[in-house]
Design a protein around this nucleic acid. Structure first.
Length: 317
DNA sequence: AAGACTGACAACCGCTTCTTC
DNA sequence: AGAAGAAGCGGTTGTCAGTCT
């Protein structure tokens, strides 16, 4: 194709750009514009291919470029957007004025490397004897891809995006709030009471604007931020402290803010019946049932709630 | 002191998508 | 409609300065 052949031409320079080359390109673009990139090098007096000129301008020289370290807000946004749209760097960059897809991609890749190297807080936590029993039980059911690198990365992301303070609660459900079916509602009700520390008589409901839960006479604030890209492919507006319904088909209840992770895991395992994550203290397992077989996959090892959940929902086994 | 390692980021490559004729 | 070139995109590699051993 055009670029490939143009870059193979003899006397075309490659590698880092010199200040002189930068100056030539800037001078040309600012006076003439760039209309057709393949014509730029010749007109600007550069021994580069048009593609290289374009990249240099877009990623480095254009005046509206923003350089320097990412702010915490930008970092958070990148993490959130990546959780929603994956490696669509150009899409992510469009939400960060002055930042390039290349810059964000580089940032992401080095950040991920760092995170993988650094042992996670939860994965190094000592398990209680109760935890160890539960952990052992499910070790035996591990899937081949258990604790894959991909999963480790996602767990790290989850730690960052969903810091999980002990007294708060977060959850998402398998349908829009208007369509909670009875069995899901009952399970959610039970889990909610336990998680929020309510007595069994206390009633609760999701407030109409979906950002709070009314429990008895107190209003509780969810801490989670969810994204949903499942149906339209469009990016759901990201809002801190707002709980959005996530469409996890037949997924049952998902607590702990791992909606997208659950979806990934369940889809990867072609789960059609139902699945459940129990994650009060930290993310732990996704369960699902298919053809009479229990499937289980770990998100982050250990959960002090495992026994409780198993006794409450014996159908997990 | 010197070589190995690491992180940051610039640049390239190959493929896909868009545009033009 | 479809061929060809241009532009866009994401994965990967290269470079270099700083740090570690």
């Amino acid at each position: 194709m055009g670029h490939h052949s143009c870059c193979n031409q003899q006397k075309v320079k490659r590698g880092l750009w010199s200040p002189e080359e930068d100056e030539k390109l800037i001078r040309f673009i600012t006076t003439h514009g760039y209309g057709c990139w393949s014509e730029v090098p010749e007109k600007a007096g550069l021994q580069r291919c048009g593609k290289s000129c374009r990249l240099r301008w877009i990623n480095y020289l254009r005046p509206d470029i923003r350089r320097g370290r990412f702010t915490p807000e930008e970092e958070k946004l990148i993490i959130s957007l990546h959780g929603a749209v994956g490696n669509r760097w150009a899409h992510i960059a469009s939400h960060l004025p002055g930042r390039t897809d290349n810059e964000i991609k580089n940032y992401w890749n080095s950040w991920i490397k760092k995170k993988i190297r650094k042992p996670s807080r939860t994965s190094t936590k000592t398990l209680s004897s109760q935890d160890q029993t539960s952990h052992l039980e499910f070790e035996q059911n591990r899937q081949p891809n258990f604790l894959s690198q991909d999963l480790a990365v996602k767990s790290q992301l989850q730690e960052t995006v969903f810091p999980l303070p002990g007294s708060s609660f977060i959850f998402d459900i398998d349908s829009t709030f208007e369509n909670i079916n009875e069995s899901n509602n009952a399970r959610m009700d039970h889990i909610f009471h336990e998680t929020a520390g309510l007595d069994s008589e206390s009633s609760w409901q999701i407030c109409p604007n979906l950002d709070q839960v009314q429990a008895g006479n107190q209003v509780l604030q969810p801490i989670a931020m969810f994204t949903n890209t499942s149906s339209s492919g469009l990016l759901t507006p990201l809002m801190d402290n707002v709980m959005l319904p996530i469409e996890v088909q037949s997924c049952g209840i998902n607590m702990g803010g791992g909606g997208q992770m659950a979806l990934d895991i369940l889809q990867r395992n072609e789960m059609n019946d139902w699945g459940l994550i129990d994650t009060q203290q930290c993310p732990s397992y996704v369960f699902w049932e298919q053809a009479g077989q229990l499937g289980v996959e770990e998100i982050v090892p250990c959960s002090s709630n495992m026994e409780t959940m198993l006794s409450t929902y014996p159908s997990c086994l």
